[in-house]
Amino acid sequence: MAQTLEFLTRQQATLTSIRGIVHTMKTLSAINASPYEQAAQAIAEYRHTLEQGFAAFAYRTGPLQIAPLQTERAQIRQQLLVVFGSDHGLCGGYNELLAEQVHQYALGLELKHEPVLKHKPQPLTLLCVGAQMNDALQALGLIPKAVLLPPASADGIGRLATELVTRIEAFSQAQGLHSSTVNSTAVGLAFTQRAEHHLRDPHIQALLPLDPSLLARPKRWDSRSLPDYNLPPDTLLSALLRNYLFASIFGAAAEAMVTENAARLALMQQAEQSVDERLEEVKGELNYVRQTDITNELMDVIIGHLE
């Protein structure tokens, strides 16, 4: 009985310690998600401003002649796919779910979210963000060309986005394409985004070639002041394109980090509930053992007194 009491006491202490760790992880996940969510909202506003810039450019210059995506995609020799994963654990099958989606895409299977991307060019070049995502991709036979470190904080998203823009430009130049050609290379972003009912949704977004509607000339300009610019058209378009790439990558990275912390928060909440339930069971067992031990000692005293 003494060993059982000692065992239950140790188990209670262990569960109490685990609950403290789980509660700390849950708190950190909630705290960490907030800056990433604010960054995602801010970059969405900036991206909207860039879209207005493209519209102003097209209204002032005239619509660019961009071939339809299906025709242009047949001329693309390679495609680059940037996969945003996690470098930390305790977030469920976060990396594995997205890796499976990328694997399906690499096999040319029809994707639920991006029908534009279902006819992929060959071969597929992967850039991976996160060591654990790299492991998940390699387990499915996909070998990334490079593995980048995910942002450690919201301030690091800009660093990552700048590096990826540079790598995309290098990829385009390696194919013998001109960086000023907006429809010259194919680039996609694979990341996990938030879905309804606190779920997460693996998502593949087409980044390049640009959607022709982005450079379509508006029928009317909703302002009394018509747009104008002083820079050479090629210089302005190149700057708009580079900033659009940056904003899109920044937004995908921020959304991926928000979803990762949300997944970890949900998992920690489940773990905390499970630990609490087990802790209550152990407390009940401990109280029962203690009461039984006390009762046995009292009975020994009473029987000894009667004798």
Rank of each mutant, 00 (worst) to 15 (best):
D87M: 10
G93Y: 02
V301Q: 03
R264S: 15
I21N: 01
L226Q: 08
A271T: 11
T16F: 04
Q79A: 03
S213D: 13
S225M: 15
A2G: 10
Q78A: 13
E100W: 03
L215P: 08
P123S: 01
L148P: 00
D276K: 13
H203T: 13
A216M: 01
A56K: 09
E72T: 14
V182R: 13
A56C: 06
P121Q: 05
L98Q: 05
L81W: 04
Q79R: 12
D276N: 12
E114P: 04
S17F: 10
P123C: 08
T9R: 14
A106C: 12
L231S: 15
P35L: 04
Q52E: 10
L279A: 08
T166S: 13
A262G: 03
Q269W: 07
N183A: 14
Q132S: 01
V116C: 03
I43W: 00
R200F: 07
M25N: 15
R290N: 09
L306C: 09
I43A: 01
I157W: 08
H113T: 09
Q132L: 15
E196M: 00
L140D: 01
A30W: 02
G176S: 07
A152Y: 02
Q12I: 05
P232K: 01
G92N: 11
D155L: 08
H305P: 04
Q193C: 12
T259D: 11
Q205P: 00
L226C: 09
Q193F: 05
G156I: 07
Q269F: 01
A254D: 10
L279E: 08
L149N: 14
A263G: 13
L5F: 08
D228W: 09
H119K: 15
F191H: 12
V102G: 06
R217G: 06
Q104R: 14
S223P: 01
N261P: 01
V102I: 04
T27G: 00
